[in-house]
Every structure is written in C-alpha cells, then in structure tokens.
Design a protein around this nucleic acid. Sequence first.
DNA 1: CGTTCCCTTGAGTAGTTTCAATACTTGTGG
DNA 2: CCACAAGTATTGAAACTACTCAAGGGAACG
Lengths: 257, 257
Amino acid sequence: MLRRTGQDFIAEYRLTGDFLAGRLRHVLSEDDKRYIESLVDRTRSLEDGEHLVRRGELTDECAILLEGFMFRTIESAQGRSIVGVNVPGDFVDLHGFALKRLDHDVVAAGKARLGIVPHRRLARMMEEQPGIARAMWFATLLDAAIHRKWIEMLERLDAPRQVAHHYLELHTRLGFVGLANSYAIRPPFTQIDLADMCGISAVHANRAVSKLRDANLAEIRRGTLYPKDWKALREYAQFEPDYLYGDGTLHHIEAWG
Amino acid sequence: MLRRTGQDFIAEYRLTGDFLAGRLRHVLSEDDKRYIESLVDRTRSLEDGEHLVRRGELTDECAILLEGFMFRTIESAQGRSIVGVNVPGDFVDLHGFALKRLDHDVVAAGKARLGIVPHRRLARMMEEQPGIARAMWFATLLDAAIHRKWIEMLERLDAPRQVAHHYLELHTRLGFVGLANSYAIRPPFTQIDLADMCGISAVHANRAVSKLRDANLAEIRRGTLYPKDWKALREYAQFEPDYLYGDGTLHHIEAWG
DNA sequence: CGTTCCCTTGAGTAGTTTCAATACTTGTGG
DNA sequence: CCACAAGTATTGAAACTACTCAAGGGAACG
C-alpha cells in the first residue's frame, strides 16, 4: 500500500504514528507517543472478509488498523448492516476495552494489517497515564460523532448524496493520515458494500452511482471514486467535515485543561 | 415526576443514583458511588425546548439528567435531525469533556432537571480514580452502541417499525432506572419529534402511528404509547435489547480486569 | 375564546424496491 | 492462454413506500 504520512510516521512511531493524526495528536507529548507505541504487542494480518471480532465475544485485546480498511457490521435475519468504516490509524475495537463485549462485528474490507494491544496494558495505561487515557477516550468519541453524522445522513440524504458523502468522509479521514490525493478515493468497496452502508438495495446503489456519473460529479469504478468536480460534489453531498474534528469549527486546539 | 428506582436511589445518591443503573453500576463500590455523587456541583432546570449545549460551543461543564428527557439534535438548512434521546441517569454531554466542543445540540424534550459537573472535577477524577473514569468512558460507549442501533434501524426498518422500536428502547432504558411500567411509555414526544428521529415527514409519522393502531399493536396518543400486545410489538419492531448492555448476551458481569 | 400548535386525511409525485435478465471482471484450473 | 465459475455491475418494468402540498379538525394555553 502506498504510504506517505505526516511527520509522526517515522521509525519511532512505526505502528501508531497515525493515531489521532490531524485531530488530537498535536497535544500529545513525545513521551505520550512513545508510550502509545509501546502498547502494541504484535501485528496481525487479515484477509478480505475475515473477522477480527464478533458480536458478543469476550475480548481481552484491541487492535489499531495499520493498513487497509475495516467495516463495523451488524448481521441479522435480513442481512448485513454496515454501521461504520475504519481507516489506518483507527483503533477498530477500542470500545471493547470498556464494554468487554462488542455489540457488532469488525470485519476486514480488503486485506488489512493490525497492531494488537492487550487490554491489560490499557488498564495499566488508565492508572499511569490519565492524559493518554483521555486521548483514547477522545478517539472512541470520534467514532460516536461519526455515528451521529451517519444517522443524520440516513435521516436526510437520498441515496446518491449518501454515497458521495461516504466517499468524501473517507477522503478527509484518509487525509488526516496522509493517505489522500486529489485524483481518486480508493477504498475496496463493492456496490453491495455501498448499499449496506446506505440501507438501500444493491440495484439502487448502482443507480445512485449512475446518477453521480450522469450529473458529472464523479465516476465510481470498482470501488474507486474519481471526482470530476470536487466543489460541486461536496455541495451536492452537503459535506461539512467539521464533525471529524480536524481543522475547523470543532477542532480541539488547546492542551488538556 | 413519578420516581421509583432501584436500591441506589436513596438519599445518599440522590443525584447520581441512576447513573449506569441496570448496566455497570453493580461493579462500582460504595466509595465510587459516593465519589460520583460528589462530582455534582449544583442542579439546573430547563424548560421544554431549551438548549443545554449548542454545537461548537466551548464547554467546561457536563450534566447528568435527573428528571425528564432530552434530545441530541443536529440542525441544518433542511431542518432538525434527532440523533439521540436521553433519559434520567444519562450524562447528556459527557462527550463534551474529552471533545471540548460538541458536534450537536442538546435540548430539553419537556421540562428537565440536571445535575451539573464541572470538567475540572472530571479531570481530577481521571487522575485519582481510573476505575470511575473507565465507568464514565463505558457510559459514553453505551451512547455509541445506541447510535449504531439507530443506524441499523434507519438502514433496515420501515417507519412504523422504527417508531415502535424507539418506544421499546426507551421503555428498556427507563426500566434500568425504575421508571418503566407495563401500561404505557410516556415520553413527551410530538409526532414531529418522532418524524425527526426516523428521518421521515410529520405526515408520514402520523401514518406510521396509525399503522401501529390499525395492526392492533399499540395506540400512541399525545406522545404516550399504550401497548396492546407487548410480545407482538417487540417482534414487529424486531426489538432485541442486548445492545443496551443490561442483562443479556452483552452484559458486563465481572469487575474490571 | 381565540390562537397556536399538533394531528389527521386525501391526492398526486418522487424515490426506492423487487424481480428478472444480461453483461462485465476476476480468479482458477485445464 | 483459454474456459469456466462466481461474484459484481447494469438496465428495464412494475409495484410499493414515503414525500409534498393542501386543507380541515382537535387539543392546549393564555
């Protein structure tokens, strides 16, 4: 995978250099960053579609995504709902540390590589490093803020706008960790994945994709979105990235106080 | 307001006796509970529709809901989206402690009474009481789990099923804090509120309510749902309460480990 | 005792679904 | 290198769901 990340993605923070990059990372000290790096016990790879955690499983480890994409999914009799997407730098199941059992599955979307962090190290971190604990808490709250935006999207936007919004969100999140460019947004999604994110049928996901093409906003081929007009696309999807807590109205500038 | 809560709702925990009741409260020690009670600086009342926090505001306090209901809302050019509901015992803006600025508004639904907790006390709590910090973290993760269920609902369920599901969720959450009975579920919601929770028009919310009545599942009058057949209603709405982390497959039984 | 908000109903329109059929991709084994 | 299989993408038609607009009825509050 192509990697070109910010200043922290250097040998010293080889595994966790993307953690909260572009968000809260600037308030962490070098000691903090070293501490976080030292939490990782080992790495692990997953194949496309492989589960990292299943709903209801008792867990004693968390994982930070190093490469690739992952889905949070909820399966039911009616099929699969995708309730979240993760990009490199995200702790994909940090929620499991406090919850012990997750309410959802975490599944690789394409090949993925992860850094594994035992819960016992996080428990010690809570005792020793309340500032880092607060940053970890912050990271799970970012997930919650994204969940809220998805709720808002599902409540307001029609299918093509939702599809566009999902891509634009990913582009911003990939940008935080230095993985975005202005030519294409390249998640390994099928139209079925898009459908399961938007709560629509696969046929309708295809029509949504067609509509973006016909409106000359973007071309989506094999999961990759090629924007034709960034500005128009953002306006069409009503994309306002501040809920991601990067630079913008909600950005957290000061140190912890 | 009618109050009849669990064993912890006694004079000693007059304000915070409902915090995590039915979920994680059983792993807290009496010292922990006293510490949590001592976090509250004062109480505050809100009128119907009054804002506690607005999106983007810099905050230095949190609030625990003592009586009444509150909405988490996101306003946009197209109107209001309701992305969450709170019941007594919930910390309504605990997210604001780590995020500093919320991505959404917090608004009273009917009259509400709150206990105010300054961030500085929470910061000290993080240093002194990692166990309590973890319980607070847990509480915000419950919100995230509920957000995920809402996403799943919006992706899967038609309008009448969503309305029924929202009421059943509230019934379970009110039950955790001793505020549920088997005759009625009484939030102060208008059909406009229901519409904004489900992402549908007010007219369609009305038709959803009519459908529940016509199907002999429940009657909804002036916000109050009178169930005609609990079992049928739960099946109709596909309500499975385990995502709320009360008793059930996801319940957190052991002490922190 | 009116005003205001909320609820209800009808009619026509827009968005989405299902079913069905066809084509394109990718990976696998011959 | 080709053939096949499996998964993915595309298109059409008919049915359904939910939307908007519009108008009228009802309940609560001052």
